[in-house]
């Protein structure tokens, strides 16, 4: 579904390597959580894989299409929700989603049905025909999500989607992430919320200083689910690390799937 091989990204005029030889391979129907401190390289990785910024070396392929060489086909299979929930504020919610649907060539009846469905599950009936500039943070985020899903992408990428959302909106998004992956689609999202990640994800990748330190399969080793905070703080530093031993480290290394 998504194959990132040896990805390297260094911003111009910056000695620091933001993404340092990262490799990830995502399976169909899984939810993958991407964890790391602020500035660890999560958003840069996501921006590279969505085609927003160029990268220095490595390759990214989405559903078998290279994001550089076959970018249009790759983008057709992907939906992206940015961390800043920026949308075209002068359009109404419906206009914006329809505009995106036009770009992804979504048929009329399908889009009408999907807009109706999303409007209902995200509770946007009263706002959908108002200009987006009057929307709250959460409503804008929901419109971003609707636009990203209007073509039912095989890969759904979200950059810190729960940031600043109320509990109800967070739950709505979590529910839909599960629903989307249950249809065989893949969800890749970055987050700072370890509780949500351990409840929702099949696998988790932890990035620190541009390097992917580990990938943990939470289904194969359920005990890792409970220890996620501990693992995260051990790798990234800070927090309250309870214990570390050699066996845990060895499990972590074994769980790396590259």
């Amino acid at each position: 579904m998504l194959i990132i091989k040896d990805l390297v990204k260094k911003y111009p005029n910056n000695n620091y390597t933001s993404v340092d030889h990262i490799s990830i391979s995502l399976r169909e129907g899984e939810i993958f959580g991407f964890l790391g401190k602020n500035g660890a390289g999560k958003s840069t990785t996501i921006k590279c894989l969505t085609g927003i910024i160029p990268y220095d070396s490595g390759s990214i392929s989405i559903c078998g299409y290279d994001i550089i060489k076959d970018s249009i086909k790759a983008k057709m299979n992907m939906g992206y929700v940015p961390d800043n929930h920026m949308v075209i504020e002068k359009l109404s919610g419906r206009e914006y989603v329809n505009y995106v649907a036009d770009l992804y060539r979504v048929e009329k009846m399908i889009r009408i049905e999907r807009i109706r469905y999303f409007t209902s599950i995200f509770n946007l009936e009263a706002a959908i025909d108002k200009q987006i500039k009057s929307y709250s943070h959460g409503m804008k985020q929901k419109i971003c999500i609707m636009a990203a899903l209007i073509h039912e992408p095989k890969l759904w990428v979200l950059d810190e989607p729960m940031m600043g959302l109320d509990p109800q909106s967070t739950q709505d998004i979590i529910n839909y992430m599960s629903e989307h992956s249950s249809k065989g689609n893949t969800v890749f999202f970055s987050s700072h919320n370890l509780d949500i990640v351990k409840k929702l994800c099949d696998r988790v990748g932890i990035i620190n200083s541009g390097k992917l330190e580990t990938i943990i399969d939470l289904n194969d080793t359920p005990s890792e689910r409970d220890k996620l905070e501990e693992t995260f703080f051990r790798i990234c530093g800070g927090g309250m690390v309870k214990s570390t031993d050699a066996s845990q480290s060895s499990t972590l290394i074994q769980n790396q799937i590259i």
Partner: peptide, 27 residues
């Protein structure tokens, strides 16, 4: 500043070219 217009819903399918051009004009 954040007062907004209510826009009549139109579910019209447009080719990519005219969708992009329309968006530019609307903005």
């Amino acid at each position: 500043e954040s007062e907004a217009m209510e826009i009549k819903p139109i579910d019209k399918v447009r080719p990519v070219f005219s969708a992009l051009l329309r968006k530019e004009y609307v903005l």
